[in-house]
């Protein structure tokens, strides 16, 4: 068959496919279906819906013929474009549902944390050991504080956490602080994760640096003797914030280690797979940090709540965090086939 006959015979079909793909109603219906969470939603009217897969398969077949018979690049690129577009509609991924967020927080996130517990431990140590080391060092020689804490900040510590501190803070500052904590802390968690790509170095840097900072900060608080007011302030949001720092560090290390030790995969494949695996941990850490920001801005700094209540609630929140990470979604853990195999063996 000559090219011109071929084109004449099938061009109706192609225009029909084009019409289906570009019909304005298809875009609207797609949205409705996306919000209803229908799988592989074809964004189509019912009669189009039946026709599209058929037309798509035919255009794939015709594209193969066009290539095999060398009908020419323009026809080939037209059919390639059509097939691509139809392919895109037929193979789009399932639309998001609020249920997915709940599942991320209650199942996927804690489960991934448990699966990465070795890395989480490493990340925690990379954070805690420098903090303790710095605390001890600064206690011995208090000049060291200003090596990591800017002098201006160090000078304000007394004002902020002293017995008279934070009393006079107006309500508008609470909101400003919330915005700042989200912008700053969630941003740091994301950067910690991303920079882990460079063989884990970036994640290690953020963990150790934050550890040093907090150690020095704590040493300064100890020197001034403001422990009670300081720890009653940080304990509540610290439950979420400190955990989230360690978790985003662990996720960053996961990225870096996938390049260092890809196993029997190519490094590119390992990176893709491990990145996908690490993402729920980063997402969970981000949610933790938003919770921490809410607590830090509106609860921890409250002048009305007595310190003893803050300490009690803070301790309870630590327990909640640890229970969430160690127990939530555990039923699913045990149903995992690889676990079952291990037990059988």
């Amino acid at each position: 068959m000559s090219r011109e006959v071929f084109e004449a015979r099938y061009s109706d079909e192609w225009s029909r496919l084009e019409r289906i793909l570009h019909a304005p109603s298809t875009r609207r219906r797609e949205k409705e279906r996306a919000s209803a969470g229908i799988r592989h939603s074809a964004r189509l009217e019912p009669h189009d819906e039946a026709e599209l897969p058929e037309l798509y398969r035919r255009v794939c077949h015709q594209l193969a013929l066009v290539r095999n018979r060398h009908y020419g690049t323009d026809l080939e690129s037209r059919l390639n474009g059509l097939a691509l577009e139809a392919h895109e509609v037929l193979y789009q991924s399932r639309a998001l549902h609020p249920r997915d967020l709940a599942r991320l927080l209650l199942v996927t996130f804690p489960r991934r944390v448990r699966q990465e517990r070795a890395l989480v431990l490493v990340a925690t140590l990379l954070f805690v050991l420098p903090a303790v080391g710095m605390l001890l060092a600064c206690t011995v020689s208090h000049d060291l504080v200003t090596t990591v804490v800017p002098p201006r900040v160090a000078a304000q510590i007394g004002e902020m956490y002293g017995p008279s501190g934070r009393q006079a803070r107006p309500g508008s500052t609470d909101l400003a602080m919330f915005g700042f904590y989200v912008y700053n802390n969630v941003g740091i968690a994301f950067r910690t994760f991303a920079s882990g790509l460079f063989f884990g170095v970036g994640a290690i840097f953020f963990l150790v640096y934050n550890g040093f900072f907090m150690g020095a900060f704590a040493a300064e608080i100890g020197r001034l003797g403001y422990e009670t007011s300081f720890y009653s302030f940080v304990i509540s949001h610290g439950a979420f914030e400190l955990t989230a720092i360690a978790l985003s560090g662990a996720a960053g290390l996961r990225l870096g280690f996938s390049i260092l030790g890809p196993g029997n995969r190519t490094r590119a494949t390992a990176l893709r797979q491990e990145g996908r695996q690490a993402l729920p941990i980063v997402g969970g850490a981000a949610v933790y940090l938003v919770i921490a920001a809410l607590l830090e801005a509106f609860w921890s700094s409250s002048a009305v709540v007595p310190q003893s209540v803050k300490l009690a609630v803070g301790a309870a929140l630590w327990i909640v965090v640890l229970l969430h990470l160690s127990l939530s979604g555990r039923r699913g853990d045990q149903a995992r086939p690889d676990r079952a195999r291990v037990r059988a063996a």
Binding site: S93, F190, S195, L197, L279, V282
Partner: peptide, 26 residues
């Protein structure tokens, strides 16, 4: 932006590529 197989980019992939933007910036 599309997935490597030509399908529309999904949430996971989009989040990953945009979180990693910081690594690209370095």
């Amino acid at each position: 932006v599309v997935n490597g197989d030509g399908t529309p980019v999904n949430l996971t992939a989009s989040m990953l590529r945009n979180l990693l933007r910081f690594a690209d910036f370095l």
